[in-house]
């Protein structure tokens, strides 16, 4: 489905992604976790084609085609959806109208027939119930005066209506109460299927309690520093990202060492076991051990 290979991206003069590699097979849900400033949102925006971010190296292959060569609307029509961390207000444009325009633009781009108003209304009515959204909210302008929770529900509603093949959720869980969090998790679960995938970008593990990913990747300092199964998320929650921020895990200096932390601490992960011995700094190994103990 998605192959990210040695992706470098900058904004202005500063490089934020220093060679991210990641693969999301068909039907899988992957989580990308990492501390603030690690490049998580940059990754999400680069996948969606946001403007000021410039790709300076590497490639992204989506469904066998070069995703980076496509305009944002082409990516959308091809099935890439980004749930925004901060959904944007568009005053004067009713949400219903926006949704129908979006859906029909995508259908048109794919050579499918457009949905008429009646069919569309029926579709929206079904989907909005899944995310617990009042009809009245949809007659208001896009996100205009919506609460934080309403905006996030609106993102999930849009996702359910557009039925993307690859959903990228950029910290959609941040600042949500438990009900809204469940809506997000249920939304992704509803879409789950053998030919749909999702990339959950998150700072916390909370969402992953409701939505167990197939794989978890840790992004730090602009690189994937560790990958593992769902337990990796639990471990990070317990221990935090502190160890990942230490100098030893800076890319280039000790990425192998970084990978090894996970190995010890979770004890369940089989990858990168060999490199344990290469850890050179006391701080990291201490941290590692204590986590391991905690388990």
């Amino acid at each position: 489905m998605l192959l990210i290979d040695d992706l470098h991206a900058s904004i202005g003069d500063s490089e934020i992604l220093h060679g991210v590699s990641l693969e999301v097979p068909d039907g899988e849900i992957h989580a990308v976790m990492g501390p603030n400033g690690s490049g998580k949102s940059t990754l999400a925006h680069v996948l969606a084609g946001r403007d000021p971010y410039e790709v300076t190296g590497g490639r992204v292959i989506y469904d066998g085609v070069d995703l980076l060569a496509m305009a944002p609307e082409e990516r959308a029509a091809a099935g890439v959806f980004l749930a925004f961390q901060q959904p944007v207000e568009i005053p004067g444009v009713p949400t219903m109208y926006f949704l129908r325009t979006a859906l029909n633009a995508q259908r048109r781009a794919r050579g499918e027939e457009e949905l008429g108003p009646v069919e569309f209304l029926a579709l929206v009515d079904t989907k909005r119930r899944l995310v617990d959204m009042e009809r009245a909210l949809l007659d208001r302008a896009v996100n205009d005066g919506f609460s934080g929770g309403e905006r996030k529900r609106n993102e999930i509603l849009q996702m359910l209506i557009l039925e993307p093949r690859l959903a990228v959720l950029d910290e959609t869980d941040s600042g949500l109460d438990i009900d809204a969090l469940r809506v997000v998790a249920d939304g992704v679960t509803t879409l789950r299927g053998p030919d749909r995938s999702a990339l959950l970008i998150t700072h916390h593990q909370r969402l992953l309690e409701h939505l167990v990913p197939d794989r978890v990747h840790v992004l730090a300092g602009g690189r994937i520093v560790r990958s593992g199964g769902p337990d990796l998320a639990v471990e990070l929650e317990a221990h935090g990202y502190a160890t990942l921020d230490s100098p030893a895990v800076e890319p280039r200096t000790a990425s192998a060492g970084t990978a090894s932390i996970g190995t010890i601490s979770t004890g369940t992960i089989s990858t990168g076991t060999i490199s344990t011995g290469t850890i050179s700094t006391g701080t990291i190994s201490t941290g590692t051990i204590s986590t391991g103990t905690a388990r």
Binding site: E73, L82, F84, A102, A105
Partner: peptide
């Protein structure tokens, strides 16, 4: 705003 709309597939 433009990017938001384009991300949803609107040219």
């Amino acid at each position: 705003q433009l990017f938001y709309a384009r991300q949803r597939g609107i040219p």
